[in-house]
Design a protein around this nucleic acid. Structure first.
Lengths: 104, 104
DNA sequence: TTGTCACATTGATATATATCAATATAACTG
DNA sequence: CAGTTATATTGATATATATCAATGTGACAA
């Protein structure tokens, strides 16, 4: 996964309201108004959060008449989860920097 | 995992420099000055990032004389990774809010 | 067409965050 | 002790983000 993409996804996840939204999408596709009713947020704020989740690839949206239905993308959550687990296990070798100054 | 704790960890991870630091810690314990040499950051800024990583439980520190050695905590990365994967698979049932207004 | 409903966008604002220069602290060194 | 080194803290600043009120948009309904 590209590094800038990873940061984008993690930024999208690093918010209590957005995590709550992803939980609410656990029962499958949900209309925005249902999310709004469960979330103590104004409608524009919810819209803002949904845009961030969609842009990060964590949620997809489907328009049906006046409504928009949002769906959680398990694939993205799985990928980022695997990525973080891998980060905990990676054994990259790194070189002292060119301007390394530590005296021992 | 507590929700507020999860957000704290995700916020700590949602930064390119801090992800880079965790990668640099892949070769095991590293002195702060080695990290600094690899990171195009000022010393106070690195210190700031290390504090955030430590507070989130993603890194531990060990003082040895003038130096501080930082170690990545694979356990925390693994836990948050598993947590996100679980979020992608959860099938929570949620109720329409009390003030639900959607007309069908 | 006019009104209403669901959602998005805009504009403004307050808070959070990343950053660095300057300074403090703590430990070693002579 | 005084000087040096490694890191932390403080203070200031710029940018990012979360939030809401007001308004725009697009779709249905009468």
């Amino acid at each position: 996964m590209e590094s800038t993409e990873t940061v984008k996804i993690l930024k999208a996840l690093a918010d209590a309201n957005r995590l709550h939204i992803l939980e609410l999408l656990g029962s499958g596709e949900q209309c925005a108004c249902v999310l709004l009713g469960n979330l103590d947020l104004s409608q524009p704020t919810l819209s803002h959060h949904m845009k961030i989740l969609c842009d990060a690839g964590l949620v997809t949206s489907r328009k049906a008449g006046k409504w928009i239905y949002y769906t959680r993308r398990a694939e993205t959550l799985d990928r980022i989860g695997t990525c973080l687990q891998a980060l905990g296990r990676s054994t990259t070798v790194n070189h002292p920097a060119s301007d390394f100054r530590c005296r021992e």
